[in-house]
Computed example of a mutant assay.
Amino acid sequence: MALLIVLCLLRTDLAQANTDYIQEIESQVRTAALVDLAAENSDTEVDLFINPINPSLSLARCTTPLDIRFPYKSNQRLTARVSCGGSKPWSIFVTARVRLWKQVVVAARPITRGTQLTPNILTLSRVDTTNRGADYFTEIGQVSGQKAKRSIGSDQPILMHDLEPALLINRGDKIVLEANRGGVQIRVSAIALEAGSLGEQIKVENLQSKREVYAEVSAAGRATIK
Rank of each mutant, 00 (worst) to 15 (best):
R61W: 00
C62M: 05
T63Y: 05
T64Y: 11
L66D: 01
I68C: 11
I68D: 02
R69T: 15
F70Y: 15
F70Q: 00
F70G: 01
P71Q: 07
P71M: 03
P71T: 04
K73S: 11
Q76C: 10
R77T: 10
R77C: 01
T79F: 01
T79K: 12
A80Q: 03
A80I: 04
A80T: 01
A80E: 00
A80C: 02
V82P: 02
V82K: 00
V82T: 04
S83Y: 02
S83W: 01
C84N: 02
C84H: 00
G85P: 00
G85D: 11
G86L: 09
S87H: 04
K88T: 13
K88F: 10
P89R: 05
P89D: 08
S91H: 06
I92F: 06
I92G: 03
F93T: 09
V94M: 03
V94G: 02
R97P: 00
V98N: 09
V98K: 10
R99M: 11
R99T: 12
L100M: 13
W101F: 15
W101R: 07
W101K: 12
K102S: 04
V104P: 08
V104L: 08
V105N: 04
V105P: 06
V105H: 07
A108C: 09
A108S: 14
A108G: 14
R109K: 14
R109T: 13
P110Y: 09
P110K: 08
T112K: 11
T112P: 03
G114C: 07
Q116C: 12
L117W: 12
